[in-house]
Nucleic acid binder design. Sequence first.
DNA 1: CGGTATCAACTAACTGGTTGGTTGATACTA
DNA 2: TAGTATCAACCAACCAGTTAGTTGATACCG
Lengths: 178, 178
Amino acid sequence: MWSVVRDKEATKAKLLEAGLDEFAEYGIAGARVDRIAAKAGCNKAMIYAYFGSKEGLFDELLKIQIDRMIKSVPITPDDLPGYAGRLFDSYVDQPQLLRLAAYHRLENGFDTVPEAEAVAYQHKIEAIAQAQLDGKLTAAYDAVELLDLVVHMSILAFTTPNASRAMVEKAVRRLIAE
Amino acid sequence: MWSVVRDKEATKAKLLEAGLDEFAEYGIAGARVDRIAAKAGCNKAMIYAYFGSKEGLFDELLKIQIDRMIKSVPITPDDLPGYAGRLFDSYVDQPQLLRLAAYHRLENGFDTVPEAEAVAYQHKIEAIAQAQLDGKLTAAYDAVELLDLVVHMSILAFTTPNASRAMVEKAVRRLIAE
DNA sequence: CGGTATCAACTAACTGGTTGGTTGATACTA
DNA sequence: TAGTATCAACCAACCAGTTAGTTGATACCG
C-alpha cells in the first residue's frame, strides 16, 4: 500500500488550496494561518516549513493562479471582444483570482506586480501593436491603452454583480469600432 | 470663550479623518484602532464612545465619503463622457474613497451596499432612462447597463495606474456612439 | 532476512507580542 | 456642583511564528 499520510507535495497542495479559499475570502491581513491549517487538515508549522510565512504562501498562491489564467485564456488580438468575453467568463467561474489580485493590489500597492503578470502583459502589448500595424485592429488607441481598456472591461465580473459576457463583448466591440 | 480642547464634534471629526487614512491604507481587518487614535491625537476609548466599534467608525466614514462624492459629482445624462471624466478626476484627487469602497466590497460582500449609494443609484437610473426616452441618449443599452458601464469606466482610476481623464471620456464617447 | 540507523514529514504545545475593547479616575465646562 | 469629555491603565482573547519531540518509510548492514 502507498502511503497517503506523509506526502510533501500533497500537503503543499492541500495548503495551497485551503490558502486560496482563506485569502480570497478574508484578504492577507484578515486571513488566519490556524484556519488555513485546519482547512488543509494539517499542522500550522507546515506553512512555515514549505512557504516561509503567511505572505510566502499568499505569493506562491497568487503566482500559480495567474499562471493558470494566462495559459487558459490566451489573447486573440484580432478578436478582442471574444478575448474580453473569455476573460470575463473565467473570472465568473473562478472569482477567487480576482479577489486575490484585488487584495494584493490594495494591501501591497500598485507597483508590486507579480513577475509572471508583467511578462505576459508585455507579450500582449506586442501582439496588439502588431495587429494594429497589420491593419487588423483600430489605431484609435495606442497598444497599451487598448489592452488596459479591454482587460478593464472583463473586470465587470467583479465590480458589477449582474454584468454578462454579452454585455462585455458588446462594449468592447463598440470601443474598437472604426 | 469657545472651548477648543473639549469639543465633541472636533474629536469626532479628527477620528473620522484619521480613520479615513488608516482604513484606506490597511482595510478593515488590517486597520489598527491604536494607530487611528494616535493619528487623531486622542484616546482610543473615544472611538468606542462615539462610534461603538471599529466597524462602526468605518461605516460612518464610508457613508460620509459616499455622500460627499454623490453631491460633488452630479450626473449629467446628456453628457455621460463628461460625467465619467469628472468621476475619474475626483477618484484621482481622493483615492481613499475608492480604496474604502473596494475593501468594503471585498470584506463585506457585494450585497451590503450602503443605503445612500443605493438611493443615488436609483435616481441616476431614472435620469438616464428619461434621457433615452427624450432621444438624447443611445438606446443601445438599457439604463442599468449603461450606468454600470459608465461608472465602471471611471474606475480606471483605480485599476490602471496610468489611465487619464481623456482616455475615460474617449472610451465612454465610443461606448454611447449611435 | 531481521534488526536498526537515518532522515524527512509531521505534531502538540508553547511564546512573545498584539488586538479590540473596557473602566475607573480625572479634568474641564456651564 | 452636576454633567460630560477625556485618558491611562488594564484585560482577555487572539495571532504569527517556533520548537522539542514523534512517527513512519527506507536504506543499510550483519
